[in-house]
Design a protein around this nucleic acid. Structure first.
Lengths: 204, 204
DNA sequence: GCAAGTTTTGTCAACCTTGCCAAAATAGTG
DNA sequence: CACTATTTTGGCAAGGTTGACAAAACTTGC
């Protein structure tokens, strides 16, 4: 499939679809909104909808994807010699969170998607995040992706830590940025084997 | 949806569907096999097919799911006081691998599924694996799943290590059990911070 | 403004997936 | 065997998703 993403026109269409979808989602829930309705509201055909978004649920992850893109660049901008966890920490802390938007999307997801699909989608993003870290780790010497066990495992552990923290944050009551920072920091420190959490993997 | 899984009859249907599907998959590829063909070959309706398998691709992961079930029980059987990584290692090493079947399924998957879907499915299994480990970690004090950051992160890291090793194994040339054991062992040792891999997360 | 080339959109058809309800098969009981 | 409860199946309809091809809109160079 060829995804339109070049011209001004296509960007307008995309925006119209996003708007229409969000409005419907909020008004009548995700599952009770049909792709056809969204397309009609935006004044385009159903087929066009699927050219701009791979699925109905994809709309609920657009922000996530954008964030991933941001993170990739932030990571690339860190100094070469820095330990990978430091780079990740710095990038995460610098991220321009829009708590309100995150909360809204989270509410829509929680209320409307069947768990399987949503979890799969999030895991996908987590995997991409891990890929980004692995890329930055750079030990990947041009060989086929996933050639080095150490790189793969390290990157995925970091992704697991960050996403574990974020999911915990979303579930909790204190949805302040400070709390998010605290959780991410704790998770990453645990990986480093800091004073408090040494021996994490030796727990009973 | 109510999945049939009780009577002898339903088990026969399930087997017939599995057989029919595998035959078609091998003969004409996964993507060029329609669910309707499979159902017809097995002598049941399309609707019935979807009662036994959540999707066409689900057929390629039946073994995975069965393995997960096996692992869950093996883990539960380990002594309470054992460090979690030891338990995982022991369970993995005791698994009755059917290399031939694994290789065949892997070939089908590689050739036929669009990458997105297959990766998502595998990640799902990996997540379930992590859940199993987290469960066994037990620190989860009856509270809602994912309450403890340490447990979640630890479990996911272990899952990442094991699956990272397995995927590397599938990609490599040496598909012997010894090689699989070596890779899993290396990945898990890395987590423990063994003598060779200490400071994994401090790599540049 | 016009012709040629590129990008985006619409139409159509096929297949995937699932909820709902009723028919058929099976199991259990007396 | 007859009766009833449970389980499995089929049929149908609606909606999700995608490939193929042509029409429409836009860009560019003249």
């Amino acid at each position: 499939m060829v995804r339109p993403a070049h011209t001004v026109r296509s960007e307008r269409t995309r925006e119209a679809l996003r708007r229409a979808a969000l409005a419907r989602f909020v008004a009548q829930g995700v599952e009770d909104t049909s792709a056809e309705q969204i397309a009609a509201d935006a004044g385009v055909s159903l087929r066009t909808f699927y050219r701009h978004f791979t699925s109905k649920h994809d709309l609920l992850f657009a922000d996530y994807d954008a964030g991933l893109h941001w993170f990739r660049r932030a990571l690339a901008a860190r100094p070469k010699g820095e330990p990978i966890i430091e780079s990740v920490r710095a990038a995460i802390f610098a991220f321009p969170y829009d708590v309100q938007a995150i909360t809204q999307i989270a509410a829509l997801r929680a209320g409307a998607l069947d768990p399987g699909r949503i979890v799969g989608h999030i895991r996908q993003v987590e995997a991409d995040f891990g890929e980004a870290v692995a890329e930055r780790l750079g030990i990947r010497t041009g060989a086929a992706p996933g050639t080095s066990l150490a790189v793969t495992v390290t990157a995925r552990c970091i992704a697991a830590a960050v996403f574990g923290a974020m999911e915990l944050w979303m579930l909790g009551n204190d949805r302040s940025l400070a709390e998010l920072a605290r959780l991410c920091n704790a998770a990453l420190s645990a990986l480093e084997g800091g004073p408090d959490d040494a021996g994490m993997f030796r727990h009973d």
